[in-house]
Simulated assay, not measured.
Amino acid sequence: MNQTFIKKLINLSSIIGILATIALLIYGYQAGIFSSAEQLSYMISQAGIWGPLIFIFIQIIQCVIPIIPGGLSCVAGIILFGPFYGFIYNYIGILLGSLINFILARHYGKPLIETIVSKKTYNKYISWLDRGKHFDKLFALAIFMPVAPDDFLCMLAGLTKMTYKKFITIIVLGKPASLLVYSLGLTTALEAIMKTLG
């Protein structure tokens, strides 16, 4: 299975993911699921414990293979489960997904990364590996910021000599701030759009 085929498969899955998201949003709107917080909460409660577990699993997969836009899944978590639990479930899913990215890169190296990420992103950040010990500081700072390509950077970290302990510490401590800013920012923007359309 060559890299070109895998890239095409990933691109196809991303398109399918976006279309499925749009279809679910349209269905939810027509079914009245998004008409009130009560309706949304009722739908989630019907899924029981499976609701959060399915969402966390989707977030994990999303970190490794971008099926739907990452920001959209973060917002979905907050809309579906509320600010507190939505943040917790997003955090758990992204933490586990980030660790998987690190492990995959450590075991399969650059060929895997080149297959999954775009050439533009790869070329922009691959030079970080030449920074030696400064990579760890750059990585920690990037994880803390809400605009960096975290999933790719976690893979990049897997190519370095960074220990699992240091990686997990950086992710655990750095992720909450960026996730909070990112999720709440997108949620606020979405609410403003909904008010405008309403």
Rank of each mutant, 00 (worst) to 15 (best):
Q62T: 01
Q62M: 02
C63E: 09
C63M: 15
C63D: 10
V64Q: 10
I67C: 00
I67F: 14
P69N: 07
G71M: 13
G71A: 06
L72I: 15
L72W: 13
A76Y: 08
A76I: 11
L80I: 00
F81V: 03
G82Q: 04
Y85A: 10
F87P: 08
F87M: 10
I88M: 05
Y91R: 03
Y91M: 14
G93I: 09
I94Q: 00
I94R: 00
L95H: 05
L99M: 12
N101P: 12
F102N: 13
I103P: 07
I103A: 08
I103E: 09
L104Q: 11
A105V: 06
A105F: 07
G109M: 07
K110M: 09
P111V: 11
P111H: 07
P111I: 14
L112E: 03
I113Y: 07
T115H: 10
I116F: 05
I116E: 10
K119P: 02
T121K: 03
T121Q: 10
T121L: 13
Y122F: 15
Y122Q: 04
N123R: 08
N123K: 10
K124G: 04
I126V: 13
S127L: 02
S127E: 05
W128S: 03
L129F: 04
L129E: 01
R131W: 04
G132L: 06
H134S: 13
D136A: 13
D136G: 00
D136I: 12
L138C: 01
F139A: 11
M145T: 11
M145N: 12
A148D: 03
F152Q: 06
L153Q: 01
A157Q: 12
G158L: 13
G158E: 14
T160I: 03
K161V: 10
M162S: 05
T163F: 08
K165H: 13
